[in-house]
Design a binder for these strands. Structure first.
Lengths: 165, 165
DNA sequence: TTAATCGTTCAGTATAAACTAAACGAACGA
DNA sequence: TCGTTCGTTTAGTTTATACTGAACGATTAA
């Protein structure tokens, strides 16, 4: 069992809040609504504003967070495709930076959630025994989704194509 | 100060889980990822599958939840436009039912979150002093969003128009 | 006016999630 | 072969939030 000191005085000494910090903070709060931990949002914002890739320690220090938290949240963001990990020659550390096709990646995240939701709905339509009224309500819902979904994916493909030119 | 009984044996006696119940439950879990309380998702699913509008008590009982919870969560869903409250003649109670243009309402919810996020980003572009590289990264992000956003809203308008025919 | 029946609010509790410090393990360099 | 320096994992604490029972207020009916 690890020996833990009592966690007192957790609050930081109010590390002077620059406009960039405020931006990162607002971004992080807004990303919480997308289901990400607050710190993940902060890392996202920090890397977005950083021209050079940042090491894990740099991220943790810059955000006043523990390295543990930085570790799991960078991994989370990387897994979601919102940041990427790179290596720097002659350096053993991991570095992270914002991905280049950030918008498309962001959209993929959002779409993924939708698709989970709607696949549940489609399963329901397929398997549930419901009245015709309810069935048509659900089918209608899914048909409209399908059409919008298609349009959206087409638009995203165009984004990607434009980038590759 | 209200006198509360110790909260023991909170767990329900495993109220036999029908396919419809499982569907509702899956839906509710998936909606948690959209930032809604679990019970709100359950109410949403319950009303989706219910041909007749349901009273607050009926909802609470059917879900094995307290009336208090049913009250705040129906209000939440109604405020978000995912269900609607109606009155039944000769009945003092409030009834709730699934809205007719459910898909468009759902999309409005999703879009609202995006727009918050991107307006923060645009504020950042406008106000932050960043290097040209970062600025163009952010502007590019927002330009791509703007174009996709437009396409999406057009598609939604078509959905609404089709409904009004 | 009183009793009953709604919905809402409030105080307290339980649960879940996020974060930290410490332990751990792996890759390197002396 | 140690000692370092990384990143990750784990155990525990803190914090946030959802939920419940009870009190409350409003409306209706007698």
């Amino acid at each position: 069992m690890p020996v833990l000191k009592p966690a007192i005085a957790r609050r930081k000494p109010d590390a002077k809040t620059s406009p960039a910090d405020e931006f990162v903070e607002r971004l992080a709060v807004s990303m919480e609504a997308e289901g990400l931990p607050r710190i993940a949002g902060r890392i996202f914002g920090l890397l977005l504003l950083s021209e050079e890739p940042l090491s894990l320690d740099a991220i943790a220090e810059r955000l006043g967070a523990s390295k543990a938290s930085a570790s799991v949240n960078t991994r989370l963001l990387e897994h979601r495709g919102l940041i990427e990990q790179i290596g720097l020659p002659g350096d053993r550390r991991d570095y992270y930076q914002s991905v280049s096709n950030l918008f498309v990646r962001t959209m993929e995240q959002r779409l993924a959630k939708w698709e989970r939701f709607h696949s549940i709905m489609n399963d329901g339509i397929a398997q549930l025994e419901v009245s015709p009224v309810i069935r048509s309500r659900m089918k209608n819902f899914e048909n409209e989704f399908a059409s919008v979904h298609e349009v959206l994916k087409a638009a995203l493909l165009k984004c990607q194509a434009r980038r590759h030119r």
